[in-house]
C-alpha cells in the first residue's frame, strides 16, 4: 500500500475539486462522488495502513501532503468514522474497513481524505 514514488495529483483535479469519483483501493467501495472534495495541500502524517499480521510496525506513520477536503461526514457516499484518538477521528472504508484513509475533526465536520490512499477514478 505504501507507495513512495512521487505521484502527480494535477490530473485528478478539476476546478479545485476531485474530478472523478473516489473509491476504496482495496474493495472498490464508492467513497466520494466527483466534485464533492476540495483539493488541499497540507502536511499531515497518518498511521500506516498495515494489516494486523504486521503488528510490529503499528506505530509507524506516513507523511502525506495531498488531501480531498470534505465539509462534513454526510457528504460521503460510504465511509467509516473511527472513535476519537488524541483529538482526531480517522476515516476508513465503510465496507472493508481499511484505513486510515484520512482523518476528521471530533465534531465530524472537517474531513480530509488522503489522495494517495484511495483510488481516484478519472476517465479520459
Amino acid at each position: 500500500m505504501e507507495n513512495t514514488e512521487e505521484f502527480d495529483v494535477k490530473p485528478l483535479i478539476s476546478d479545485g475539486q476531485n474530478k472523478g469519483s473516489v473509491r476504496c483501493a482495496l474493495c472498490n467501495s464508492l467513497i466520494l462522488n466527483p466534485g464533492m472534495g476540495e483539493y488541499r495541500s497540507e502536511e499531515t502524517a497518518l498511521p500506516n495502513m498495515r494489516k494486523r499480521k504486521d503488528a510490529e510496525c503499528e506505530e509507524e506513520e506516513e507523511p502525506l501532503s495531498d488531501f480531498w477536503f470534505v465539509r462534513n461526514v454526510y457528504t460521503f457516499e460510504n465511509v467509516g468514522i473511527s472513535k476519537a484518538k488524541e483529538g482526531k477521528k480517522y476515516l476508513t472504508c465503510a465496507d472493508c474497513e481499511i484505513g486510515p484513509i484520512g482523518w476528521c475533526t471530533l465534531a465530524n465536520d472537517d474531513c480530509y481524505v488522503a489522495i494517495k490512499r484511495v483510488k481516484n477514478i478519472v476517465s479520459s
Binding site: M49, K51, R52, E58, S82, Y90, T92, G99
Partner: peptide
C-alpha cells in the same frame, strides 16, 4: 488494519 481495529469504529455512513 491494526490501527483502526484498535481504536474502533464510531459509526458508518
Amino acid at each position: 488494519t491494526t490501527f483502526i481495529s484498535t481504536i474502533g469504529i464510531d459509526f458508518k455512513i
